[in-house]
């Protein structure tokens, strides 16, 4: 009896995530991704400036619908992201181990923390207005109410070195409150970001709410920071580019969250990453008969 030939594994293609679809870069380029030990893992799509623009268009298109949903509904969808990630734990853990060079137990803890972060922010969706909004006691016959509203399209530079937990920790607070996002994944460890995109795509998250690009930060961050239809930037992962990007953001007066010390393991990050991407709107109306 002849030997059964060994099965050839089906490898994954890692693509971009734009407007709910998974295109390759329009530039047709890719770049090799290696593990923390230097082993080749896969080729990731190398996004171009044009992909950045397409992602911004998708994010802008998604903004009215997403920000117009009830906070309760957004919370449910974020919780659904946690559910979808739970079902892919093994895949996330394997990618985190390869990317961060850590063992199984630590990788499991990272994946758990990332899933729990979605649950955390899911609960915030319909609480943040309680905390940041309210009636103001003006000296006159008026009803005066302040409420937080999402800023709009937010460019997010995910932190380097924490390709799953760090990424979730910066993306979730941005979209929880109704913003839409264009995320530049950790350049050197982009694979968990694309796996996350696959979870997002099956989580009832509307197309375009989160767009994830992989590629070279020096190529993608400047056009994102200068784009006139981007309202805010999270520069957490900007590294040496931070100053130049902030300068460029000033051109259209984007709100900027500067890089700072971050402890991704804190289970209660509070409102600090939501507030920079919220606008306070105050509405007046006279009272009388």
């Amino acid at each position: 009896m002849a030997d059964t030939p060994a099965r050839i594994a089906v490898r994954r293609t890692y693509k971009l995530y734009i407007g709910g679809a998974f295109p390759r870069s329009e530039s047709g380029r890719s770049y090799p991704v290696t593990s923390s030990r230097g082993t080749h893992l896969a080729n990731a799509a190398r996004a171009s400036r044009k992909d950045v623009r397409d992602a911004v268009v998708a994010a802008r298109k998604a903004f009215p619908g997403w920000s117009g949903r009830t906070a309760y509904n957004r919370g449910q969808i974020l919780y659904r992201v946690a559910e979808m990630m739970e079902g892919r734990r093994a895949q996330f853990a394997a990618e985190v181990m390869a990317a961060e060079g850590i063992g199984r137990p630590r990788a499991d803890a990272v994946v758990s923390a990332a899933i729990d972060r979605w649950v955390y922010y899911a609960g915030w969706a319909d609480k943040i207005t309680h905390v940041l909004g309210g009636a103001n006691p003006v000296s006159g016959p008026y009803l005066n109410l302040s409420e937080p509203e999402p800023t709009g399209v937010v460019g997010v530079l995910a932190p380097a070195g924490s390709p799953l937990l760090g990424l979730v920790s910066v993306l979730a607070p941005v979209i929880t409150t109704g913003n839409t996002a264009v995320v530049l994944a950790d350049e050197h460890a982009p694979l968990p970001a694309i796996t996350l995109a696959e979870a997002l795509a099956t989580s009832d998250l509307p197309p375009g709410v989160a767009n994830i690009l992989t590629g070279h930060l020096t190529e993608l961050a400047p056009p994102l920071a200068a784009h006139a239809d981007v309202n805010a930037l999270d520069l957490t992962g900007a590294g040496d580019l931070s100053r130049a990007l902030e300068e460029s953001a000033a051109g259209t007066l984007k709100r900027v969250l500067r890089p700072g010390p971050a402890d991704w393991t804190d289970p209660d990050p509070g409102t600090a990453r939501m507030r920079p991407f919220l606008e306070i709107k105050t509405v007046w109306h006279p009272t009388g008969t």
Binding site: V138, S139, G140, L253, K281, T282, V283, W284, P286
Partner: peptide
């Protein structure tokens, strides 16, 4: 998309009422 919306009134100001802009009106 504006930081202050006056309904059936206009140009009211009060120290207890936050004032400021969206977009290129500042932050």
């Amino acid at each position: 998309r504006a930081g202050v919306v006056w309904c059936n009134t206009f140009n009211q100001f009060d120290p207890a009422s936050p004032f400021g802009g969206y977009k290129e009106s500042g932050y």
